[in-house]
């Protein structure tokens, strides 16, 4: 039985074929899918913030791009994934509300996206697709049987990366 595994905000989950990982309603957060197409295992992370080093206390490492991605990577390897075969696809990082004088916190979407890209680069995981920025929310799912990363929006329809 294929299961639909829900990934909440500031969380990540890993799984294997034929399951699907899904995360609903990303705004400025970024969803990161990692997938090994041969072993058909992967993970989906829903990060809220770029950097755990600026946080006062880190209770939940899945909240930050820099701590969540390495943890998820380890869990995928433990499930039988091979790091040299992994690809990454990402979506999110929007700016939901537009103010005339954009405050720093409002740019958090871009900062999240930039942090994710640089961490993937450090880990040598190729980024094969991205749908980031804009001013609209996204639901993302990773289908672990066929390796499709699907992005659904209200304003712009859905697409497979």
């Amino acid at each position: 039985m294929a299961e639909l595994i829900k990934v909440g905000m500031a969380d990540y989950k890993v799984g294997s074929s034929p399951d699907t990982l899904i995360s609903y309603g990303l705004g400025s957060c970024v969803g990161i899918a990692l997938f090994d197409p041969i072993a058909k295992v992967g993970g989906l992370s829903h990060i809220m913030l770029p950097d755990s080093s600026s946080a006062r206390l880190v209770e939940n490492p899945a909240k930050f791009a820099d701590s969540a991605i390495p943890l998820m990577l380890n869990d995928i390897l433990r499930l039988g994934g091979n790091k040299t075969r992994l690809w990454a696809k990402i979506a999110g990082g929007a700016q939901m509300f537009t103010f005339a004088n954009t405050m720093e916190i409002m740019r958090i979407g871009d900062r999240n996206t930039d942090a994710v890209i640089s961490i993937l680069r450090e880990l040598n995981i190729p980024l094969l697709g991205r749908d980031t920025g804009g001013n609209y929310g996204r639901t993302v799912e990773l289908k672990l049987d066929i390796g499709i990363f699907r992005v659904k929006t209200i304003a712009k329809g859905e697409k497979d990366l």
Binding site: L49, L57, M96, F97, G137
Partner: peptide, 18 residues
Amino acid sequence: DMAGALLSVMLIQLGQVG
């Protein structure tokens, strides 16, 4: 838009400290 996407704007600010 989706409720989660809008609420995240507030939640991200709180996420920096807890």
